[in-house]
């Protein structure tokens, strides 16, 4: 395993917000390596910098200093277009607030990444239905996203994250909005994907119980890694 190129790695990562008096260091000298198929929890209190770290790892944000590499490639060397394609093909996102389009059907929401990728309508529907089947929501495909329960919505979000067959799924407080029973089901689903399909899972959470279920724990406090580097 040690010879394998890490799917995501950072070197001396630093993120500073603001200038002069109001300067704020969100992240300081973060060095991490995430191997393919790992499940990682980024644990920290709110304001600790865990979300910033996830955004930088997901290439949604750029570090002030340091390097992020994806499969050994320095992300700062990639064009904006390449980054867009990389996020579209390799990453899946699961958010606490779902971010589903309430007016569209479940299927339409799920196939959004494929639509962005330029996949044909026929292929989109086929793959969308397959992935909805895997989260056991194929009967709800034509329902409006708004008509679903919280747990169902989060399953739609997972289906959407999966539809592009990504290498990495980023989950930001995936169970934060759910009751404990539903939350447990969603957790189980995420870990199953991690184990069975080898998808690298990066979960941002302040929930110690959820973090403990991951292969590795990165605890972050005031912008520095205190555990798990």
């Amino acid at each position: 395993m040690s010879t394998q190129t890490p799917v995501l790695a950072t070197e001396h990562l630093k993120k500073i917000y603001g200038k002069g008096e109001s300067i704020f260091t969100a992240l300081e000298s973060i060095n991490i390596e995430i191997k393919k198929g790992e499940s990682i929890a980024i644990l920290g209190k709110s304001g600790s910098g865990k979300s910033t770290l996830m955004h930088i790892l997901a290439l949604l944000d750029t570090p002030t200093e340091g390097v992020v590499s994806v499969d050994g490639t320095d992300a700062s060397k990639l064009s904006v277009k390449k980054l867009d394609i990389l996020r579209n093909k390799q990453f899946g996102f699961v958010f606490q607030q779902f971010f589903l389009n309430a007016n569209q059907t479940v299927l339409e929401n799920v196939i959004l990444p494929l639509k962005i990728a330029g996949v044909s309508a026929k292929e989109r529907t086929k793959r969308g239905m397959e992935v909805l089947k895997s989260v056991e929501l194929e009967e709800k495909a034509q329902n409006k996203a708004n008509d679903l329960s919280g747990g169902q919505k989060q399953r739609v979000v997972i289906a959407r994250a999966l539809v592009n067959e990504p290498q990495v799924i980023f989950a930001d407080e995936p169970t934060g909005n759910l009751d404990s029973v539903t939350g447990a089901a969603i957790q189980k689903m995420l870990f199953t994907l991690n184990k069975e399909r080898g998808i690298t899972l990066i979960i941002v959470t302040h929930d110690h119980e959820l973090a403990a279920k991951c292969d590795r724990l990165l605890e972050i406090h005031d912008g520095t890694l205190v555990k798990g580097a």
Binding site: L60, D84, R87, N88, Q97, L112, I116, A117
Partner: peptide, 16 residues
């Protein structure tokens, strides 16, 4: 705003 942010996160380019 959120929908646009989501689409951008999922790799939709500025020009699109």
């Amino acid at each position: 705003t959120k929908e646009i942010g989501l689409m951008k996160a999922m790799g939709m380019g500025r020009s699109q």
